[in-house]
Design a protein around this nucleic acid. Sequence first.
DNA 1: GTCTATATGTAGATAGAC
DNA 2: GTCTATCTACATATAGAC
Lengths: 217, 217
Amino acid sequence: MKTEATTDGRLLRGEATRERVLDAAERCFGERGYDDVSIRQIATEAGVTLGVIGFHGGSKLELFRTVLTRRVETLNAARRKRLADLMSRQDRPDLRSLIDAYLTPYLEIASRGDQQWRSYARLIARIATDDRWYAEMRPLYDPVAHEYLAIIGRIHPNAGPEKLAAALTLTVASMLALVASRIRISGLSEMPDRGSPLQYREMLVDFCAGGFEKMLR
Amino acid sequence: MKTEATTDGRLLRGEATRERVLDAAERCFGERGYDDVSIRQIATEAGVTLGVIGFHGGSKLELFRTVLTRRVETLNAARRKRLADLMSRQDRPDLRSLIDAYLTPYLEIASRGDQQWRSYARLIARIATDDRWYAEMRPLYDPVAHEYLAIIGRIHPNAGPEKLAAALTLTVASMLALVASRIRISGLSEMPDRGSPLQYREMLVDFCAGGFEKMLR
DNA sequence: GTCTATATGTAGATAGAC
DNA sequence: GTCTATCTACATATAGAC
């Protein structure tokens, strides 16, 4: 719960265990969702006993919320950086570049070699269809979304807020589908999967940009 | 389990109970997913006792599968009928009409006054992000999808099967978002929700048609 | 900080009375 | 065909030993 440092700055043993617990929970929840995972399974996955989970993670619900929120700011920062880079180069960036800037950070974390970030991306894609969780996430994700929508609104002054919000919602749903439902593409096409969400980036950004343009036209 | 008719053709009491059980299960699963629902809750919702659920629905898993599959053919038939109507009027329908024909039946069942169909639509939107269930649904839904893709492929002969499959997958994800995540549109825009998925039909079809066109261009 | 042991609740499933 | 009673398993949570 509390962070403590030794004299030389290294983390205490307890802090390392806490990380193991959170990482294990992230993997379990990402693969199977909330209800289908028991804290016993998380304990086994983390290589600790049941009591340790309670000590470091609190209740199952608290543990889940911690996992959901601990990586949000990293993702937000990546989206903000890409937007800032874009705006520093041109005052009115084109729609496709804006959408690419919003979508790519998520595709990247979902495609990492590192399994932890992939699990987190999978988890977000999972909870997106469940109001009980996503209601808690919205306040964390919406501010950056609003920053993007403000810029897009400047480029398309005729588009009302409802259409802008709808277009972004459908864009995000498409993005999440590349993590949660990519298997359907290979299933429908009978072609091998490309291996990671990032390899569908061009198609995804084309689809969403085309959708935005047609909706806002 | 077995269907029996009385002399005058009305259903036996047992058959009516079975319907009550399946309807109650559909509502519960649609609102909360598989793992978060107990068969005890389904029994309460159906107004029967626990044993009756087992008698008519089998195990929880069998019950869930029955609920998932019993409405598929109705939806498939609606999609096929709209496609046939379209093809009878013109040999090469435009892309937007094709997408509209594919999406509208689902939007309609998700917007019905009748709660049962709405619950089913919600359930489909829920399981779409979960491979363990959707893998079972794909064989049921894919044949109609292939019929649509064959027509679209004729109109866009340069589009390969992978792009066609990807575009349809993102289209379906967008469609499902209007049932599972519509609240995000009102949340992001600070405007009231329109009340039913069907009222976003124009926006959705525009988005998906624009996405298809840009991807296949 | 970690582990063992256990309290307490609820899950799914079903046997047998009615 | 339906209901009651119950079996067994496993869930979350935590008190207290180490």
